[in-house]
Amino acid sequence: MKRLGLILAVLAPLGLAACDEPVAQNRGVYMLMDTSGTYTDELRKAQQIINAMLTRLDPGDSFAVARIDTGSFSEKDIVAKVTFDDRPSMANKEKRQFRDTVGQFVKMVKPARYTDITGGILQASEYLNEKNTGKKVIVIFSDLAEDLQKGYMRDISLPLDGFEVIALNVTKLRSDNMDPREYLNRLTDWQRKVESGGGRWRVINDLDRIEKLSLY
């Protein structure tokens, strides 16, 4: 009723609104999955998160899932990507295909030696900027412990203006248990890094309440 009323209220200036530059209302979600040795076991959870996100995405939204490995700033690390068709029936088919692709990947994945999270975030921002979606969300399914191979330069600022970065299931390492400051510092460092790039930072560790993962 409220929605109908609103539509009626704006019916008159619709003509003028149509002449304006169209504002993108769709959403873009880029999920980074940590495949380093310490985190591979958590990928089943990641698959469930992906499925939950798929149920919430609408026609026209873009979704990509990429792995975090030794060098993540690469298109080759994108496991599956899709921009859902405008028609809901086609979008449903694409969701099922996407789910199957991710399922195959989770079965076949091999642990990576190093963990290049920064490269993955850069790749995500590049992908979502290219898609030019109305809302840009980067989901990092990782323990956030970055481990770069020698020679990889990642000490750069992240261009995340207008992005929301959500860290999911940030597990505690054995060393974190010995010295919790490491874990807290790790979270603080990433928050600072994201916010200095213009992005918003959130951490969700309680995966039982996945509804907190609002994509709107």
Binding site: L6, I7, V10, L14, A17, A18, D20, P22, V23, Q25, N26, D58, P59, G60, D61, D86, R87, P88, S89, A91
Partner: peptide
């Protein structure tokens, strides 16, 4: 809802 199947579910005029 079924109209989205005909005219697309991701086309907007303003915020509608």
């Amino acid at each position: 809802r079924p109209m989205a199947e005909m005219v697309g579910g991701n086309n907007w005029i303003g915020t509608f």
